[in-house]
């Protein structure tokens, strides 16, 4: 998440990491300019979240899953909280446009961000319908069950609850208690909007308790897996992919019988992966302070 909200003693080092990261991206991009959005074409505004480690992790997750996404043949993709437009622009470049039958929606609660997103999209010659909205409140009714791919890099930093949703740039990161306030409002919206074959990609921090998020989603019938896991100097990020899974749905409906082994697809979900991951267990001390 953005460096300037970290405690001061980390400030200097994290800034240099981000600059380095951006410089590296520039190099990679000049070699293969057509795969994702270019940092030099991202529009900026002081009140708008600039692409950061978390944005890069999300785009890298989408790139890593690009072949699956193309085979999935989505019709409507959506980003909630588009900020600079870096992610939705990258997705549109990666998967294709109207000629392939793909359409994109992007929302943000920050009026500066939606304008900046439109500029970033235009600079790359791609299109998404951009809407200034709280999550997707104006779209929820009519777009119910129509989104095939949803991507979210939410405000996930643990903060006092009263910082959530305040005006300007703070809304980009302020996530309330355990960083979960906005996440916990996004998940039911995603569940409503996603089509029966819909996929959700979401960035989380260890302090958000991703295991619990996955178990909550599992009760709604979603399987999950980590697509990208990345530790930076001050945070441990993972991009989780959620999808509706028939076996999980059956399990979610039926009480679990103790001596019955869960089917393999459930074994493979994130829930069972998490305890093996190296950062597991150290979350509070690393990120939660």
């Amino acid at each position: 998440m953005d460096c300037n909200i970290q405690i001061d003693m980390h400030k200097h080092s994290s800034t240099t990491t981000h600059e380095r990261e951006k410089a590296n991206r520039g190099m990679v991009l000049s070699r293969m300019p057509s795969r994702i959005a270019q940092i030099k074409l991202i529009s900026r505004h002081t009140e708008v979240y600039e692409p950061c480690d978390d944005s890069f992790a999300l785009v890298d997750a989408l790139l890593a899953d690009r072949t699956n996404l193309l085979e999935h043949r989505p019709t409507i993709c959506m980003e909630v909280g588009c900020g600079s437009g870096y992610v939705i622009t990258s997705l549109a470049i990666m998967l294709g446009q109207e000629v392939e039958g793909l359409h994109y929606f992007a929302t943000d609660i920050n009026p500066h961000a939606v304008r900046v997103t439109r500029e970033t999209l235009e600079a790359h010659g791609v299109h998404a319908e951009v809407i200034c909205d709280n999550l997707a409140s104006g779209l929820e009714r009519r777009l119910e069950g129509m989104i095939d791919v949803m991507v979210v890099n939410p405000p996930y930093v643990p903060t006092p609850e009263d910082e959530v949703g305040i005006d300007g740039i703070a809304a980009a990161w302020a996530g309330g208690e355990n960083g979960r306030s906005v996440i916990d409002r996004i998940l039911p919206v995603a569940d409503k909007l996603l089509s029966h074959r819909g996929w959700l990609y979401m960035v989380t921090l260890t302090a958000n308790n991703p295991g619990e998020i996955c178990s909550n989603m599992r009760k709604k019938g979603y399987a999950s897996r980590i697509v990208v896991q990345r530790s930076t100097e001050e945070e441990s990020l993972h991009v989780i992919k959620f999808w509706r899974d028939a076996d999980v749905q059956v399990q979610a409906r039926e009480p679990i019988i103790t001596d019955r082994r869960p089917p393999m697809s459930i074994m493979e979900t994130l829930l069972s992966q998490l305890p093996q991951l190296p950062f597991w267990g150290s979350s509070r001390t690393r990120d939660g302070s």
Binding site: R115, C132, D133, G138
Partner: peptide, 13 residues
Amino acid sequence: RFAVTKGIPNMLL
């Protein structure tokens, strides 16, 4: 009225 500016509707309440 929900304003539409630069092609972007503002649905904030």
